[in-house]
């Protein structure tokens, strides 16, 4: 059972960039961006075409990142300048990207990149390779942290926190939204490209349900590490992504579960993670209110009120 863990950790790290992208839109910008399902595949498709064309892995990854930025830019423009509802602008781009992705893949629903350039292909043993991948993901996380502490990054965060306030201090919230959505989809596409080079395979449907997986990672991470600072919040996303893959790997070992049940399990994880804290909060508040009102009225016992006749 444990021998599936290292593989799950590797996948978790590669998918972590996608989860960081979802974190930027969902948590920082408070913008539910569904472009992710499309742009993940876009990144994978671009990388597959570049790799089979004989380009190096670095160039291919950069191209995938660029394609993601462009996809996010379109969603951002639709939402801010076109004034299209946030959810709808993401869905529209997701659908549009499906056709674009097929075009990128030259009409083929899947492409094998077996034998082309791979990240750390010559590195062994496996745990060193894993460490190297972790190093890269960590570097990207730290760069993102630094960006979120720049003047532009602060404006981006404030756009999701209190748009009216940051506008009154001269930031163009349309631009910060577009920037955030672009950056998010750039990371998502980069993640898609990483998955393609790792699995040596690109598929037109590889992005389906990605948004929920990203959300699950963000939520799991938050539940464990919290989000007190930017540093902790982004670290939590990576931890969440890895844990998600481990949970999935373990769940697939259960005999009566099929691989096709994966999406249902993912949805259940997100639902539980969303509903449970809400219920907890309500209960806590009720208890607190009861305690405080008992203190205020000076009643310590549970004497029933009324019925004294």
């Amino acid at each position: 059972m444990l021998n599936s863990i290292p593989g799950a950790v590797e996948l978790g790290l590669l998918y972590a960039l996608m989860a960081l992208g979802v974190f930027i839109t969902f948590r920082i910008l408070d913008f539910p961006d569904l472009t992710v399902d499309g742009s993940f595949t876009t990144g994978g498709a671009v990388a597959a075409i570049m790799l089979t064309g004989g380009h190096s892995i670095t160039i291919s990854l950069l191209a995938a990142f660029g394609a993601g930025l462009a996809a996010g830019l379109c969603t951002g423009l639709l939402h801010t300048k076109g004034r299209v509802n946030g959810l709808l602008s993401g869905i529209l781009m997701m659908i549009a990207l499906h056709s674009i992705n097929l075009r990128i893949m030259d009409g083929a629903p899947n492409i094998s990149v077996y034998g082309s350039d791979q990240l750390f292909s010559g590195v062994s043993p496996y745990w060193v390779k894993l460490l190297a991948i972790f190093g890269i993901i960590l570097l990207i996380k730290l760069l993102l942290d630094a960006f979120l502490h720049t003047e532009l990054g602060l404006a981006l965060r404030a756009t999701g926190d209190n748009a009216r306030m940051i506008r009154s201090f001269g930031a163009n919230t349309d631009l910060t939204k577009i920037l955030g959505i672009s950056l998010s989809n750039g990371l998502v596409a980069l993640s898609g490209a990483l998955i393609v080079q790792q699995s040596s395979f690109a598929d037109i449907s590889m992005g389906v349900g990605m948004i929920v997986i990203g959300l699950a990672s963000v939520i799991i991470g938050e539940a464990i590490l919290g989000a007190r600072t930017v540093f902790i919040a982004t670290l939590a996303v990576i931890v969440g992504s890895v844990l998600y893959r481990i949970i999935v790997a373990l769940a697939l070992r259960i005999e009566w579960l099929d691989a096709s049940d994966l999406k249902l399990i993912t949805a259940l994880i997100v639902i539980i993670a969303l509903v449970l804290p809400a219920i907890q909060r309500t209960w806590k508040q009720k208890l607190l209110a009861k305690k405080r009102s008992a203190e205020l009225t000076g009643q310590t016992g549970s004497k029933p009120i009324g019925g004294g006749f």
Partner: peptide, 25 residues
């Protein structure tokens, strides 16, 4: 901005009237 620190809020106020770049807030 409620989820940001006091110093980050002041940094955003401090940047009023200037273009916001990649220097630390």
């Amino acid at each position: 901005a409620p989820h940001m620190t006091i110093e980050e809020n002041l940094a955003m106020a401090h940047a009023r009237g200037r273009s916001r770049g990649l220097s630390f807030g």
